[in-house]
Each structure stands twice: as structure tokens, then as C-alpha cells.
């Protein structure tokens, strides 16, 4: 029997390579390539006029079904620095409140000529659904508890740069031990971060009560933060949300801080070289009770800065001319250099 597939599962023919949806899907080669592109974008961002023509006449549509000021602004700034046209669509203003389906919304926006959708949604998997309905590139800006690949890339880049000091950025995280502390079960930041850290050779240890660890989790887990503190090179703190208390996941916030918070006592126990990271926004007094500015090696604001370069790299890789085919150094098409010329 033959005939068109009429399920609505029709694939548009777009493959994983034309999207940035998760670290696992990107794979090690693209992750490394994106980190290299980030180096170039960081260089652009250090210029007095940090704007290049690379994505001129390309349109990037940010669709945020869930509140996110920082990630949205970071993507907007990244797109603009590459000279892309941007549209931002927040669910509050949308016709989704009038009963229009997600698919109709996407198809309508796609018909306006969108080249890339940057999507944030509270449900895991929505970027995959969207890429079934449009030929545009899809960038996952966070889906449910599942993935947040640009956060993971910026975390890796920030950590690698920090560990390299004034030398050129190291190419991997081999030999680096990272503790990631907090609500891993409900965290897309943790899922993507762990995948990327492990992909780059780091040894990751998850620190959380069993209630906040995903079932059948393959990364090593401990509840004993104090014991591992002296052994680690980086400490990644996750945001602890107070709604977790209601589900019998943690008794209360002060107990959480006692067992898993970065307290002054724990700072004492920690090696001075430990890099402290947090995806923001911080719950001061919960996962961290010290002022991060007083820590010897906190890169929390650096993460935010790197975020713009990473998002530029991701958009450029997907939409730039010839960018996805070759590393910038070897690219022969529409010269990488000309796309990165100062405007």
C-alpha cells in the first residue's frame, strides 16, 4: 500500500543538523565547533562596535511560552549583533489565549518568512514538535525539564576559559571534576550541562537528595557535599525552587541549605581554585548564603556575558553562509572573515 502519510506526523525533511535542540543531538563534533565559533563571537563582542553583517536579511523569531527575561534578551542581543531581524513573541500577547493551536501559530509565523525559531516552553519536547511543522531552524531556549543547550554551551565555554587563565582556551574538560548541586530532576540546565560536561571529558558528580535525582540516572550521585568539596575543580549550584517543598521532595529550605547550600563554612573547606557557577537567578540564602562577589573564583556574571557569544555562535552556525559545513578557518564559501567584518 502506498499513499501520503496523513497522520500529521509528517516530517518536513529537516534533520537534527538544521536545529540546536539538545546537547545529545548536537553531538561532540558540533559542540566543539560551536565552542570554537563562540571564541570568534567573543572577539566580535570585545570590539568597540560589536556588530557584524553575518545574518543580514535573516529573520529570527523568539517565541517564549514561559517567562524568561535573561535568556530572551540574550538571544535578542545575539541576533542583533549578527544583523538579523528579530521578532519576539510572548505568549501573553498571543492568539494562543484565543484557542489557536501551537501548530497554527507556528505555521502562521513561518509563513511570514522566519528563518529560525528560538523556543522556550514549559513542556519537554516542544522544539521537536515545532520542527515537524516548519522548515525553519529551531533553537531550544529551554523545554520543560529536558534541555537548555545554549546554557550548557555557555557553561562549558565559561569554565574552559576560566580554567585556561590567560592561555588559549583549553579544548576539553578532561581531568576536571565538577559537582553539580541541587534540583537535578526538574532541571533542564542540569540535564544539558551534565551531558555537555561529560561529552567534553569532565568527571561529573551530582549532589542532591534522592528525591531530586531523576530515576535511573547514569551520572554518579552523592548526598555528601562536604566530603567531595576538597576534591572538585568546579561547583555548579542550581536554583532551588520553593515549590519543591510541597511535593515532599525536601522537608524545608533551611534543611536544604544545611545539607546542600554554599555556606561560609563550606567555602572554607573548598579549595581556593574552585570555580563557582550558577545559571541564575540565584536564590540568595538558599543554595548560596555567601556573597558570590566575595568568592575567590565565581564566574556567575561571566556566564551571562558568554551567553551572548554562544547564542551568536548557534545562530550563525544554523543561518550563516556556509557556516555549518566547515570550521571558520577552513571555510571557503562567502568568507567567514567578510561575514565577521565590522559594520
Amino acid at each position: 500500500m502506498t499513499g501520503p502519510d496523513q497522520t500529521g506526523n509528517d516530517q518536513t525533511g529537516s534533520s537534527a543538523a538544521s536545529h540546536c535542540r539538545s546537547i545529545v543531538e548536537l553531538g561532540p563534533q558540533r559542540v566543539r565547533h560551536l565552542l570554537e565559533l563562540t571564541d570568534h563571537m567573543a572577539e566580535v563582542n570585545r570590539r568597540p562596535n560589536p556588530k557584524v553583517p553575518a545574518l543580514r536579511s535573516r529573520t529570527v523569531c523568539n517565541i517564549f511560552f514561559e517567562d524568561s527575561t535573561r535568556t530572551r534578551l540574550s538571544f535578542e542581543m545575539a541576533a542583533r549583533r549578527l544583523s538579523a531581524d528579530t521578532m519576539t513573541f510572548s505568549v501573553g500577547q498571543s492568539s494562543l489565549n484565543k484557542g489557536e493551536s501551537l501548530r497554527d501559530t507556528i505555521e502562521t509565523l513561518a509563513a511570514m518568512g522566519v528563518d529560525a525559531f528560538v523556543v522556550r516552553h514549559r513542556s519537554s519536547g516542544v522544539p521537536w514538535a515545532i520542527s515537524r511543522w516548519t522548515d525553519a531552524a529551531v533553537v531550544n531556549a529551554g523545554d520543560g525539564w529536558h534541555a537548555h543547550p545554549t546554557q550548557a554551551l555557555l557553561d562549558c565555554h565559561t569554565l574552559m576559559s576560566e580554567l585556561s587563565g590567560s592561555s588559549p582556551r583549553r579544548a576539553d574538560l578532561a581531568g576536571i571534576k565538577i559537582a553539580i548541586v541541587g534540583d537535578i530532576k526538574h532541571s533542564r540546565v542540569a540535564r544539558s550541562g551534565i551531558a555537555a560536561f561529560e561529552m567534553l571529558g569532565a568527571e561529573v558528580i551530582a549532589v542532591a537528595p534522592r528525591t531530586l535525582i531523576p530515576p535511573h540516572f547514569s551520572t554518579p550521585v552523592t548526598q555528601d557535599l562536604d566530603t567531595i568539596l576538597p576534591e572538585i575543580d568546579a561547583l555548579y549550584l542550581l536554583r532551588m525552587q520553593s515549590e519543591r517543598m510541597s511535593g515532599a521532595l525536601v522537608p524545608d529550605l533551611s534543611e536544604y541549605t544545611m545539607r546542600f547550600g554554599l555556606t561560609p563554612e563550606r567555602v572554607q573547606r573548598m579549595n581556593d581554585n574552585v570555580v563557582v557557577m550558577h545559571p541564575g537567578p540565584m536564590n540568595r540564602g538558599v543554595e548560596i548564603t555567601v556573597d558570590p562577589a566575595e568568592l575567590p573564583r565565581s564566574v556567575i556574571t561571566k556566564q551571562v556575558t558568554t551567553g551572548i557569544a554562544v547564542r551568536m555562535a548557534v545562530l550563525f552556525e544554523l543561518l550563516g553562509s556556509g557556516a555549518a559545513q566547515a570550521a571558520p578557518e577552513t571555510s571557503t564559501e562567502v568568507g567567514f572573515e567578510s561575514q565577521m567584518e565590522e559594520l
Binding site: 519537554s124 519536547g125 520543560g144 525539564w145 534541555a147 533542564r188 531523576p214 530515576p215 535511573h216 547514569s218
Partner: peptide, 8 residues
């Protein structure tokens, strides 16, 4: 394992 990876 799958649900753990997929964040569901």
C-alpha cells in the same frame, strides 16, 4: 532511563 533523559 528514557524518561530521565527526556525530562518527563
Amino acid at each position: 532511563e528514557c524518561c530521565s533523559h527526556l525530562g518527563l
